[in-house]
């Protein structure tokens, strides 16, 4: 997953270079998707709130969300929430969240 993040990051850098601006913030993959987590887990997943997400790896975050989707973590609000995303979306948002420390 780390390799995946570096891959994503290099896409962002390349995109910025192509655009000829320093504005690689725009269009960061996964960021807007991941922001759906912030209401309950704090801005950038850094709390305060329910479990802090920042600091976890992309594979950890992705696997937890898959477990929620599969009903392995009960039938609470997070299980319901996880079922709204496609697999590709989960991968994107997990990759972005893993950049937060």
């Amino acid at each position: 997953m780390n390799a995946r993040f570096h891959f994503l990051a290099s896409i962002a850098l390349a995109a910025a270079a192509v655009a000829g601006t320093a504005d690689a913030q725009v269009g960061e993959p996964g960021r807007l998707l991941a922001s759906n987590c912030f209401q309950c887990h704090g801005t950038n997943g850094q709390g305060p709130g329910f479990d802090t997400i920042a600091g976890k790896s992309a594979s950890e975050i992705y696997q937890e969300l898959k477990d929620f989707q599969a009903g392995k973590e009960g039938a609470g609000i997070m299980a319901k929430h996880s079922m709204g995303y496609t697999d590709a979306q989960l991968q994107l948002l997990a990759a972005w969240l893993a950049t937060q420390r």
Partner: peptide, 16 residues
């Protein structure tokens, strides 16, 4: 520093 995250921020930084 903490907001943008990932490679995006780095590229912003390196130019200036």
């Amino acid at each position: 520093l903490s907001c943008g995250g990932g490679g995006g921020d780095d590229s912003t930084v390196t130019t200036t």
